Simulated scan of single mutants.
Amino acid sequence: MRIDLSGRTALVTGSTQGIGAAIATGLARAGARVGINGRSEGSVAAAIERMNGDGTRYDVVAAPGDVATEDGCEQVLGLLPDVDILVNNLGIFGAKPALEIDDAEWRRYFEVNVLAAVRLTRTYLPGMRERGWGRIQYIASDSAVVIPQEMIHYGMSKTALLAVSRGFAKEAAGSGVTVNSVIAGPTHTGGVEEFVYQLVDKDLPWEEAQREFMRLHRPQSLLQRLIEPEEIANLVVYLGSPFASATTGAAVRVDGGYVDSILP
């Protein structure tokens, strides 16, 4: 299957590293013009330089701005007034005992992980609907379904994204615009290797270490290894393409079988 997104413009929030960077690269390789987003001009410039590190000059647009704020959203909108593919990837996470999460922290997780995506959807969906084509995606998590005891505020925010996605899919019904969420499983991103080696033998090679980590600490994974960011990106690129025209209002899993359920 050859996915051709030539002529399409995409915005991937939080795309300077990790899953977001992999998604941005995947969309660019498929021919899309891609807005690279981060909070600072420096982080965005560095991400673009890494993308072009293999000598390929991708069609990218620097779109710095903290989209978790109204001002940041307006800044990005000024750089990319119209997009065909919106990937709401921005998110924060962290472990904290449930009874120690104060009101401010609950609000912060909701504002960054949920409200930023709602605001951008509200901004870009009308234009997509008028043009009769568009793709909106929300990067959720297995934590949306299997709420982690150590970070229920994070789990809450990802569960909310499933509801937001389904609701906006109904708003876009019959318009040629699809809206979906992607349930990502345990993924090999920055800082994960250090975390893994805190829990398994430090002398093990990485491939063995991650499999030992999954066996002992994530035994419900059927993949039995961490997911690579590019594997998440592959699904996102497909959902952003014309091939996924009949997939909307869905919570699509790329979790390595982590969620022990037939349905989300």
Score class of each variant (00 low, 15 high):
Met1Asp: 15
Asp4Gly: 13
Asp4Met: 11
Gly7Pro: 13
Leu11Arg: 02
Leu11His: 05
Leu11Glu: 05
Val12Met: 02
Val12Pro: 01
Gln17Asp: 14
Ala22Phe: 10
Ala24Phe: 02
Ala24Cys: 07
Thr25Met: 07
Gly26Glu: 00
Ala28Leu: 10
Arg29Pro: 12
Ala30Lys: 13
Gly31Glu: 10
Ala32Glu: 15
Arg33Val: 15
Val34Lys: 03
Asn37Thr: 07
Gly38Gln: 00
Gly38Ala: 02
Gly38His: 02
Gly38Leu: 00
Arg39Ser: 10
Glu41Ser: 06
Val44Ile: 06
Ala46Glu: 14
Ala46Trp: 08
Ala47His: 07
Glu49Gln: 05
Glu49Trp: 03
Asn52Met: 08
Gly55Tyr: 05
Arg57Asn: 15
Val60Met: 04
Val60Asp: 00
Val61His: 01
Ala63Val: 13
Pro64Thr: 05
Pro64His: 01
Gly65Trp: 01
Asp66Ala: 14
Ala68Ser: 15
Asp71Met: 02
Asp71Pro: 02
Cys73Glu: 07
Val83Thr: 10
Ile85Met: 07
Asn88Ile: 03
Asn89His: 08
Leu90Ile: 15
Leu90Gly: 02
Leu90Ala: 15
Phe93Pro: 01
Pro97Ser: 07
Leu99Ile: 12
Ile101Leu: 05
Asp102Phe: 13
Asp103Ser: 14
Ala104Glu: 11
Arg107Phe: 08
Tyr109Lys: 07
Val114Pro: 08
Ala117Thr: 13
Arg122Glu: 13
Thr123Pro: 03
Tyr124Cys: 11
Tyr124Asn: 06
Gly127Asn: 14
Gly127Val: 07
Arg129Ala: 14
Glu130Asp: 09
Arg131Ile: 04
Trp133Gly: 08
Arg135Trp: 15
Ile136Trp: 00
Tyr138Met: 13
Ser141Phe: 12
Ser143Tyr: 08
Met151Asn: 04
Ile152Trp: 03
Ile152Met: 09
His153Phe: 02
Ser157Tyr: 01
Ser157Asp: 00
Thr159Arg: 07
Val164Thr: 11
Val164Asn: 04
Ser165Asn: 11
Arg166Cys: 03
Arg166Met: 09
Phe168Glu: 01
Phe168Leu: 11
Ala169Ser: 14
Gly174Tyr: 08
Ser175Met: 05
Val179Ala: 06
Val182Arg: 01
Ala184Gln: 00
Tyr197Trp: 00
Tyr197Cys: 00
Gln198Ser: 04
Lys202Ile: 00
Leu204Thr: 01
Trp206Phe: 11
Glu207Thr: 12
Glu207Gly: 06
Glu212Cys: 01
His217Glu: 03
Ser221Tyr: 03
Ser221Arg: 02
Ser221Val: 03
Leu223Gly: 01
Leu226Val: 08
Pro229Leu: 07
Glu231Val: 11
Ala233Met: 03
Leu235Gln: 08
Leu235Tyr: 06
Val237Cys: 12
Tyr238Phe: 15
Leu239Met: 08
Pro242Met: 13
Ala244Phe: 09
Ala244Gln: 11
Ser245Cys: 12
Thr248Cys: 08
Ala250Ile: 01
Ala251Met: 04
Val254Ile: 14
Val254Asn: 04
Val259Leu: 09
Ile262Met: 14
Ile262Trp: 14
